[in-house]
Nucleic acid binder design. Sequence first.
DNA 1: ATTATTTCCGTTACCGTGCACGATGATTAA
DNA 2: TTAATCATCGTGCACGGTAACGGAAATAAT
Lengths: 350, 350
Amino acid sequence: MVQNGQITIHDIARRTGLSKGTVDRVLHDRGGVSRKSKEKVMAAIQELGYEPNVYASLLAKKEKPLIAVLIPKHEPDSFWELAASGIDKSAESIGAIGVDTLHFEYDQYDLDSFRTTCAKLLDANPSGVVIAPMFQEATEGLTQELHKRDIPYVFIDSKPETDGCLAYFGMPLYKSGYLCGDLLTGGQPVQNVLIVRIRRDRYQQSDPTINRRAGFMDYMLEHSPDCVLSNVFIDPNEPDKIEGTLSAWFEDHPQVRHIVMFNSRIHLIVPWLESHPDPKRRVVGFDNLKANMEALQRGIVTSLIAQRPDEQVRLAIEALTEFILFRKLPARKDNYMHMDILTRYNAEYY
Amino acid sequence: MVQNGQITIHDIARRTGLSKGTVDRVLHDRGGVSRKSKEKVMAAIQELGYEPNVYASLLAKKEKPLIAVLIPKHEPDSFWELAASGIDKSAESIGAIGVDTLHFEYDQYDLDSFRTTCAKLLDANPSGVVIAPMFQEATEGLTQELHKRDIPYVFIDSKPETDGCLAYFGMPLYKSGYLCGDLLTGGQPVQNVLIVRIRRDRYQQSDPTINRRAGFMDYMLEHSPDCVLSNVFIDPNEPDKIEGTLSAWFEDHPQVRHIVMFNSRIHLIVPWLESHPDPKRRVVGFDNLKANMEALQRGIVTSLIAQRPDEQVRLAIEALTEFILFRKLPARKDNYMHMDILTRYNAEYY
DNA sequence: ATTATTTCCGTTACCGTGCACGATGATTAA
DNA sequence: TTAATCATCGTGCACGGTAACGGAAATAAT
């Protein structure tokens, strides 16, 4: 440990001939200080190089900041579960420095659920909020209220076009589609590609796969202009039918050996892939769900593109904490996360 | 913010009919407490779920933990510079919670320099140390002294076989070589590979490339048993000669289009690669040095394997901080970092 | 001129722990 | 029996900062 001849507010009080109460007032801009005194204090702070003692401050305030996290409800092995576990992890570490965390989860297919969850969140009166938005308008309603109450918030995953948020952490969706094209083709021209898609619920508001598909299309246009792209739709609610659907399709297109999905559900087609092995096939999907990782390590899936959802939330929570505790703004407002390329050879330590 | 009905030592003092002095004594095992009192206090702590207030404790002790970091001295765009910048970043964030950080840098080719730097480090009397070891024996001398003084330490990058360190954060070297094989060959059998090597200084103690090469060899043995592996040595101290060396070699082996280096200096051969373009060539190297990244984005280098040195040190410092402040042991002792695969399509956001 | 407001600032009681100091009663030595 | 020793414990100040409270002086209102 280190002995610290720290400069305290007493020092600068003595130096200015004022009391520590006044010093505290200018430190926190609480008003009620004459211009002259304020200037003297500021000067002394500069000269002596005063830095507040975080411990003493936190102790005296005897308050714990609360960070609320608003994410979609999730099934066991899903993208949002990865995010949630990331929340728990960083909740632990910031809990150590005296910051509490609270999850709020809404049904991403139910606007009402989102609304009521927002209300609950506001009731908890958090000092900061992490938002994974799904419903454009309702989110705006929330952020307006947060603004009114002067509560900072950050977005993760996706974000409204313009917004007064503190920061945003997410994946570059278009680019991830582009990268996906490179991984699927291995950089070589390709004749046929099958895109497996999920019939979206009509209530679904935001769809990241649209941007990914766009990036993918552009890659293919540039590198394999003659490639035929086919689409097959499957229904995650009827997993039994998936194998049949795929088998039927491949009956007509036996030559297709490049398969891609732009959502996190590549694991849905793994049973079919396993029962129809082809060593030359290439399969690319997204996100490090457990089921996906297993398929990757068994060689069924060629590559996954992952975005470290846990790190996304960690950074989001960290940025929020720094702002709440120390009023420190994040270095960048828009933070695009690195896209991790996972293969069977580097999956082990992810 | 949230009001916290925290349990304090007063509460457990009142509950046991003792004074806070006594409670403090059992909390810190300072002796001078009867068996009966001690038991009563322990019981009350259990029942009420007492958790010490870190802020108050740190404030009262009026000490700031100091974390010392011991790494090799480094040139501008080198691996250890990446690590150093990671240190600065996390120093900032833990600085916010009142933890200081201090660099100590030694000449990795000079044992004496390591020794004197260790001495300086010990003089600073840190509460925890992060070590990037290069000299086996001298490192042991340091850790023994740290043990004596009861100072926790963690290793990064590499570590001695057996040691009482708190944790270790590093890259799985052998596996990274194996992965490297897959990236270089694209999973397809290959006829010829050129390994560009650096003539090591004879004083160099640890050489991560040995393990990487081993992993690479095994991959090739399994996937391209007939492949011819050639070695060419270059000297980083005479960059002017590199182009000549390579040109001379390729005169005799024009058919070789797979090139790999197992250290972070792939950028050294970039000038030659640029002046002898070949669209079908594949080049793989290690680490996200600026020069390497540029070559990657220009398409000169096919892939890089990076290990996020900044995250390595962040995790190391974080583990140390948690232990120093809260006596919390890290979840795992050996932490192998994820190997990042970088291509021109995902390099942008790294 | 007197009273009522402001403006500005010092005082003070905390926040929860750490630790030195001294007090108390019990035990032992003289 | 008296003095000295010891085990055991309570008291009180310190750490640096926060913010409520109230007082003095300056200004405004009557």
